[in-house]
Write a protein that binds this DNA or RNA. Structure first.
Lengths: 152, 152
DNA sequence: TTATTAGTGGAAACCATTATCAATTACTGT
DNA sequence: ACAGTAATTGATAATGGTTTCCACTAATAA
């Protein structure tokens, strides 16, 4: 076993941030979550996990902000009034996907189909936009909205 | 000049909604706006316009909700803590665009470049997703995030 | 016109997020 | 290991965008 470092730890260290227990726990929740928890959902998950010492909601929000800044976490608004979060890469590497949102029940599908074609076009678009509008582009967001079979 | 009906009026009528003065005013603000006003900005614009009778903020929110339901208006979250709105079609037809958002100052560029290529791929993706996940897809959202030249 | 129903808007409530600040904790150099 | 120092935490209070309530008004139907 080599010294397999968790990829986000390097980023945090480099930014001069401490690897505190709350921060690591929050990332841990995100790793073990297969959807897009809100700050409160993360808070509740941590409460369940560590009965004794609760991590304050304030800390959750603060930490998520930091992680978003560092690009470790992505931030989404699916229109249900709360911000939702997900890890930008899976625990052991990249796993890019986009979202399909049901306007009826709020159900969200993470799809990876078509990602390659999309990615190719997005890269091209990104370069074009960056040049024309003099932006440095860091990331993009694609969502499709509609109704799932149950809400049809 | 034929009987050129405002396209949204048909949609509203068909939905059994009344074409009241407040509703028409709100759409009017959207028509004459070249950016993405929030509910409050629309409220203030109307206040400026009609000194006498103010249209309540409640009505603005309610009406926007309805217009979003009907697909007359699109709803966006650019991450500045308020929901923003724009007409889904220009006053006399279609004018599809996507958004480029500066994370520094919040400046937003509406771009139409690359839209054709994007559209072609999106249509294809949309069909594929609809079939595979059994969704009926109504619309999509694409945003690029980065830093503009001033915030670089 | 009257009856009926849809729409309005001020005030109060709601609730996700942010600011405050005293107490705690992680890292540094010794 | 230890103390010094600056970053971090978290309970509480405040903020602010959005919704709810509900009595009043305006539009359509009979």
């Amino acid at each position: 076993m080599g010294s397999k470092k968790k990829w986000w730890q390097g980023k945090m260290k480099k930014a001069g941030l401490r690897l505190t227990a709350p921060r690591l726990s929050i990332i841990d929740v995100l790793i073990h979550s297969d959807d897009h928890p809100s700050a409160e959902e993360i808070y509740l998950a941590l409460r369940r996990q560590y009965k004794k010492h609760t991590i304050g909601l304030t800390t959750i929000y603060r930490t998520l902000d930091i992680l978003v800044q560092l690009g470790i976490v992505y931030k989404f608004d699916f229109g249900d009034g709360r911000t939702r979060y997900e890890l930008s890469e899976g625990p052991n590497g990249f796993h890019h996907h986009h979202h399909l949102v049901c306007n009826g029940c709020g159900h969200i599908v993470d799809y990876t189909d078509f990602i390659d074609e999309e990615k190719e076009l997005l890269d091209r678009t990104e370069k074009g936009l960056a040049k024309k509008y003099n932006f440095s582009i860091h990331h993009h967001l694609i969502q499709f909205y509609g109704l799932c079979e149950h809400c049809r």
